[in-house]
Amino acid sequence: MEPIRRQQLIDATMATIDEAGLADSTIMQISRRAGVSAGIISHYFGGKDGLLEATMRHILTDLGASVARRRDTLSGSDAREHLYAIVEGNFDRSQVSQAVMKTWLAFWTTSMHKPDLQRLQRVNDRRLYSNISYQFRKHLTLDRARTAARGLAALIDGLWLRGALSPEKFDISNAIWLACRYVDEQLDGNDTA
């Protein structure tokens, strides 16, 4: 499928979920918004679940790119700076728009019941945990690094979820500050290297 057409369908999916929610979004609504026939969605994606998976893969690609952009500006391998970049990337503009937040929420709830989506969620969760754990491991024992990584991943998800549930009051700067303070608390005075 043409990349432009694919992007139109992904954008239409997010806009339709934003407007109607996943349960009330239909293939017909999405296809109409994208300006394509409903058959194209079924043909290329196998239906609404496949389209949601493709949309989430796009959002996850944006997330990875936002973290990578921040990490590319770093001068070295300082764990604190890399952890800050991971935190900031998770609260990037690409991850906190209304449409993207509602799509994330729809994905999370649907992934509990759909094996293909559940696998995608597990991969995303493991990637975040692994990246965080690797950075903490530069300064903490293995057990402490793992515990700190679980804590930071939970804090990122929790702050993001609270923001998604009350977007008009979502203070992104404060969420980043809180998560970065957690990083500082874990690293300060705990250097084992």
Rank of each mutant, 00 (worst) to 15 (best):
G46M: 04
H82D: 04
S75Q: 14
K48E: 01
D49Q: 08
L152V: 06
T61L: 14
F170K: 01
L165Y: 07
D92S: 13
D188I: 11
F45T: 09
Y84D: 08
F91D: 07
E185K: 14
Q186F: 05
L51P: 03
G158I: 04
I176E: 04
Q121D: 14
D24P: 02
A54Y: 04
G163L: 03
K114A: 14
T192W: 04
T61F: 13
A54W: 06
L152P: 00
F45Y: 15
A15K: 03
Y182I: 05
I40A: 13
I17A: 09
L152E: 05
W108P: 00
S173W: 06
I176L: 01
R146P: 00
G46W: 00
T61K: 12
L22A: 09
I86E: 05
L152Y: 01
D125F: 12
E2C: 08
R71G: 06
D24L: 09
R162L: 13
V87E: 00
A68C: 05
R80T: 09
N131P: 07
F170E: 02
M112S: 14
T192D: 08
I27M: 10
S25V: 05
R127H: 12
I172K: 10
D171C: 02
L105P: 05
Q118I: 03
T103M: 05
G46D: 08
D78K: 00
L9V: 07
E88W: 00
S94L: 04
I132P: 00
R32H: 07
A20C: 11
L9Q: 08
T141F: 03
R70M: 07
I132H: 00
C180E: 12
T61N: 14
G21F: 00
R162T: 08
I132M: 07
D72Q: 12
A145F: 01
D18G: 14
D49L: 10
G76A: 09
H139E: 15
D49P: 04
T141Y: 03
D171E: 09
I27K: 05
L120S: 13
A15N: 03
L60H: 11
Y134P: 10
M112D: 15
L9E: 09
D188C: 05
L51V: 02
A179G: 00
D125W: 10
G39N: 08
V96C: 03
R69Q: 09
T13Q: 05
P115W: 09
S97M: 02
A34H: 02
L159P: 01
K102E: 10
L178I: 13
S66T: 07
E81R: 11
D171H: 02
A149I: 08
A145R: 03
M56G: 08
E88Y: 01
I27H: 01
K102N: 05
H43R: 15
T147G: 07
I4K: 13
L52P: 07
N131C: 11
D157A: 14
V36P: 01
L120Q: 13
N174L: 13
V183N: 08
F45L: 09
G46I: 04
K138Q: 12
